[in-house]
């Protein structure tokens, strides 16, 4: 079945937007973090869609790099979240207010 490139692009744009909105409105750190992952995966979808439509591997290589980076980011991010949870016992960003925003 042939699906035109624009459908993939539209889907990834929607996913990316969902991620952006989620980061902005969610108040739990883990949810915000998952929204960021959603944004990265929306980008991956864009890369793969272009890559397969051009029959060129550059985009797929980029996806591998993004996945590696996302894994490293997840490790560090969860480490930071654990450190903050140990000190505060809460994951609500509204309580992260010692430094004025």
């Amino acid at each position: 079945m042939y699906v035109h490139l624009s459908w993939y692009l539209a889907l990834s744009a929607i996913l990316f937007t969902v991620g952006v909105v989620g980061v902005i409105i969610k108040r739990n750190i883990i949810s915000m973090f998952m929204c960021i992952e959603l944004m990265l995966n929306a980008v991956n979808l864009t890369f793969v869609a272009f890559s397969s439509s051009f029959r060129d591997v550059t985009g797929q290589l980029f996806v591998f790099i993004v996945m590696t980076v996302a894994a490293a980011e997840a490790a560090v991010g969860l480490g930071i979240i654990i450190a903050i949870f140990r000190n505060r016992e809460s994951l609500d960003v509204d309580e992260a207010n010692i430094l004025r925003l």
């Binding site: 990316f16 973090f33 944004m39 991010g77 930071i80 430094l99």
Partner: peptide, 18 residues
């Protein structure tokens, strides 16, 4: 304070990387 700084940097940093 250091935790919070790191958390904010992490969230907004990876947000902007995306």
């Amino acid at each position: 304070r250091s935790n919070e700084s790191s958390l904010k940097y992490f969230i907004l940093g990876s947000f902007s990387s995306a």
